[in-house]
Nucleic acid binder design. Structure first.
Lengths: 137, 137
DNA sequence: GAGTAGATACTAAGACTTTCGTACCACCAA
DNA sequence: TTGGTGGTACGAAAGTCTTAGTATCTACTC
C-alpha cells in the first residue's frame, strides 16, 4: 500500500501547547522553579504525576521555551521567553488568522459582545488615551 | 508492559484546529460552498489534494462545525457557527489562559507593543467611545 | 556496604491531526 | 456497453501531544 509522501515539514511551531502554556504560566509567576515548584502551583484536582511534569518541562527545554540550571541535584527551570513577548506574538497570530489582520476588529469584537463591565471599558479607553498622548507629545 | 490508565477525556474541544480554521475562514467568506469551492480559495501553493479537503470538511461536519446539504451529487457546506461568535469565544479563551482573565490587559498588550498605526489606535478609541456612549444613553 | 529517598532519563500507550490513496458509485457520452 | 469524469466513504501513515510507568543515578544514613 506504500503511502509514499513528501517529507513532512518540521512545523517548529513557536507556540506553546495547552499543557506547556499551563506550565509556562506558573513559571512566569514564579520567575524560576523546579518540577516540584510548578507542580505545587497546579490545582490539586489536576492530579498530574511527578514524572509527567518532569517530562513536560524536559520537552519544553528541548523546544527552547525554558532553560534549566542544576541546583544541587535538581533542575531549576526558567522561561526563555517573556510573558509580554509571548502575549504579543499570540495576539499577532490571532489577529492574522481570525481577524483578517486588522487588530482594530479584534478590539471591536472584544468590546462589542464580551460581557465587559463599564469599568473595564473605561480602563481600556484610559489606556488608549494614555498611549495616544504619549505618541503625540 | 501494559500501561493501564484511566479513561481519557473526550476533550470535545469546541475549538477549530489549524486546518479547520483555514477552511472555516473560507466558508465564512463564501457563506456556503462545496469542497471544490473551498479548495479554489486556498493559495495555489497550498497544493492540497481534493480528497484531503473532502475529508477535512467531512470531519468538520462530524464535529458539528459545519452542516451539509446535498445539491445534485455534491455536498454543499455551511458554517454552523458564526464568525463573530467564534471570535468572541476565542478571545474569551485567550483572555482566560494568557491574560489572567482581564481583557483590559489584552488590549493593553495590543496597543503597547504591536506596531499599530496612529490611525488604528484612533479607530479603536472611536469604537470605545461609541460603545461607552451607547451604554450611557 | 545495603537500603531508602528524590531526582532525571527513557519508553511507550493512546488520542488527535493532517494528509492522501484506494475503493466505490453514478452519470453521461461515444 | 464501456469508459471517463466527478463525486463520496473509508482507511491508514506519520506526526504531535499528553500522560505515566520503569529504570537508573546519586547521595545520605545506619
Amino acid at each position: 500500500m506504500l503511502m509514499r509522501r513528501g517529507m513532512r515539514q518540521k512545523k517548529k511551531s513557536e507556540f506553546l501547547t495547552e499543557v506547556e502554556l499551563e506550565f509556562m504560566t506558573e513559571l512566569w509567576a514564579l520567575g524560576t522553579g523546579s518540577v516540584r515548584d510548578v507542580l505545587a502551583r497546579l490545582a490539586p484536582e489536576r492530579n498530574l504525576a511527578y514524572t509527567s511534569a518532569a517530562t513536560i518541562l524536559r520537552i519544553m527545554e528541548q523546544k527552547h521555551f525554558v532553560t534549566s540550571e542544576k541546583q544541587g541535584k535538581t533542575f531549576v527551570y526558567k522561561p526563555a521567553l517573556a510573558k509580554d513577548a509571548y502575549q504579543s506574538k499570540t495576539l499577532r497570530d490571532l489577529s492574522e488568522k481570525l481577524f483578517d489582520g486588522t487588530p482594530a476588529s479584534m478590539v471591536a469584537r472584544l468590546v462589542d459582545d464580551q460581557g465587559l463591565s463599564e469599568e473595564t471599558l473605561e480602563e481600556i479607553r484610559a489606556l488608549l488615551d494614555r498611549r495616544l498622548n504619549d505618541n503625540d507629545s
